[in-house]
């Protein structure tokens, strides 16, 4: 669906303050995939999301959406508008309308839909993020923080994007909030969006929810692949100063002590199962 070929991006290009953000990045998202993107602050993750959604134009390289090169278009956002939805970090800070429903309608309205169509799309988005009709006429400033974030995500979902990109959707949430958010994303992916890409700092979140992982380091792709493939390279990740899930570390330690485990183990349940089998088997 989205394909980045040899993308480079430099902030303040051709000035003394030039800062390279992306170097020769090749990355593609296919239909049905859920990608987790990890890396340090300043590794280029956020720039990557903005390039994928057409907000930034790469300095060189191609961005293909369904095979069409959007970098050739004058206004990349206009071409991608609605097809790639981007939810920023702390999206609740962008709410501005007097009612929840009006705020969610903002995106579809900008795309030129009629009021009825906007309302319909907004209501569908509200259902997908798990907000019932009673929220429609509330002010987005008098609901709780978690609900605000849902409203903000609904504001992007209402544009019916094929690909939904989220920059650190779980920032500031407690464990229950985080679980609910991922449950909601699963729901959105099942019913509306074909693919989801989310940026995260937490390896545990990525291990739990993504099926593919892209690891960014210093503006370059460090490694990518399925969750198992990536976490197998724990040495590479740790060298880049990234954590691996605690369970993976536990198994790695046991391997060091001479015990053998055949596959990559990411969850506590799998680990307990594997250790138990070794003890009994």
């Amino acid at each position: 669906m989205i394909e980045l070929i040899d993308v480079n991006y430099t902030y303040e290009d051709k000035t003394p303050d030039a800062a390279v953000a992306l170097k020769n990045v090749c990355f593609s998202v296919k239909e049905g995939e859920t990608w987790g993107v990890i890396g340090h602050t300043g590794s280029g993750k956020s720039t990557l999301t903005e390039i994928m959604s057409g907000l930034l134009k790469p300095c060189s390289g191609k961005v293909l959406f369904n095979g069409v090169d959007v970098t050739k278009e004058k206004n990349a956002t206009a071409v991608l508008k609605g097809k790639v939805g981007l939810v920023f970090q702390y999206p609740e800070h962008q709410l501005f309308e007097e009612s929840v429903i009006k705020d969610i309608c903002f995106g579809p309205k900008n795309m030129g839909f009629s009021s009825e169509e906007c309302l319909e799309k907004a209501r569908q988005a509200m259902r997908l993020v798990g907000l019932d009709e009673s929220y429609e006429n509330l002010s987005p400033f008098e609901i709780s923080g978690g609900e605000k974030r849902r409203v903000a995500i609904a504001g992007v979902v209402a544009m019916n994007p094929d690909v939904l990109i989220l920059d650190e959707p779980t920032a500031g949430l407690d464990p229950v909030g985080r679980d609910m958010l991922f449950e909601m994303l699963g729901n959105i992916k099942g019913k509306l969006c074909k693919s989801i890409v989310f940026v995260s700092h937490s390896m545990d979140d990525v291990a739990l929810f993504a099926d593919k992982v892209l690891v960014m380091n210093d503006g370059k792709v460090l490694t990518m692949g399925t969750v198992n493939e990536v976490f197998e390279k724990s040495a590479l990740l740790e060298a880049a100063g990234l954590d691996v899930p605690q369970v993976t570390r536990l198994i790695a330690r046991l391997k060091e002590k001479g015990h053998e485990f055949d596959s990559v183990i990411l969850t506590a349940e799998d680990a307990a199962e594997a250790i138990y089998n070794k003890l009994k088997g």
Partner: peptide, 27 residues
Amino acid sequence: KIMKAQAARGNDIESGGIMKKISGMIP
């Protein structure tokens, strides 16, 4: 940041007449 976030929702403050530009500043 907010400008980018609203641009991702299709808010356009570059084109259009003065009234459209002003209403584009509200978000």
